[in-house]
């Protein structure tokens, strides 16, 4: 949250009120995010039910190994994020820094693997629009599947990038000696956001990568 942490903002009576407001604000923000992704998932569901074959085929073009590794990487980053929150609460500066750095590293690995996957899709001619040069049956609907693949994973990656920027800010703040003990709130709120972004991936992975595998 952009509010100067530590100091009590003038509109609040006490720190407790300020903290509660910040937490509620973050949860509301996450609800808007759920609605945003919800719209995408709804559109996905409609097209998957009208073009099951194309979805099945499209899914088989995705690299389930890379997707699986990325899932593991993200889950690990959630763990280090949770540990960072714990470290901030306990005023353990070194542990906080280490866990924030690990979270950033995991996030970067995830985006790196994602970039490799995107590159493979580009080479295979599976990026919708001008680059869609793939040859095969029922191309229109395959393209539609890949459109959803790119929009959904792209929106998710965008959220990851935002999260990485916020984490970097937290590292700077920690180095300046803030965020510890009573002032851990920004770490906790960033953690909420980070976990949310992970959960979105937990839905994306099976819906995109695994639906072509069950038969």
């Amino acid at each position: 949250m952009p509010e100067p942490h530590g100091a009590l903002a003038q509109q609040f009576e006490d720190l407790e009120q300020q903290h509660e407001s910040a937490t509620l604000g973050m949860w509301l923000f996450l609800i808007t995010e759920i609605m945003f992704f919800g719209g995408l998932f709804a559109a996905y569901a409609v097209y998957r039910s009208t073009h099951p074959e194309a979805w099945h085929n499209g899914s088989r073009h995705l690299d389930v190994v890379m997707g699986g590794i990325n899932t593991a990487v993200l889950i690990s980053s959630s763990l280090t994020m949770a540990l960072a929150v714990r470290a901030a609460q306990l005023s353990k500066k070194t542990a906080l820094l280490a866990n924030l750095a690990l979270t950033i590293a995991f996030g970067a690995v995830f985006l790196g693997i994602k970039a490799i996957e995107y590159h493979h899709k580009l080479e295979a001619g599976l990026v919708p629009g001008r680059f869609f040069t793939y040859v095969g049956p029922d191309l229109d609907h395959l393209q539609l599947f890949f459109l959803f693949y790119f929009i959904m994973t792209g929106m998710h990656a965008f959220h990851m990038v935002v999260g990485l920027v916020v984490l970097a800010v937290l590292v700077v703040m920690t180095l300046k000696g803030r965020l510890l003990g009573d002032f851990y709130k920004p770490v906790e709120l960033t953690g909420l956001y980070w976990h949310f972004v992970d959960v979105v991936w937990i839905f994306l992975f099976p819906l995109l990568y695994l639906i072509g595998r069950h038969g």
Partner: peptide, 12 residues
Amino acid sequence: FGVGIFDPKLGG
């Protein structure tokens, strides 16, 4: 990007 999400010509 000229790709069909709501365009029936591309299955949208």
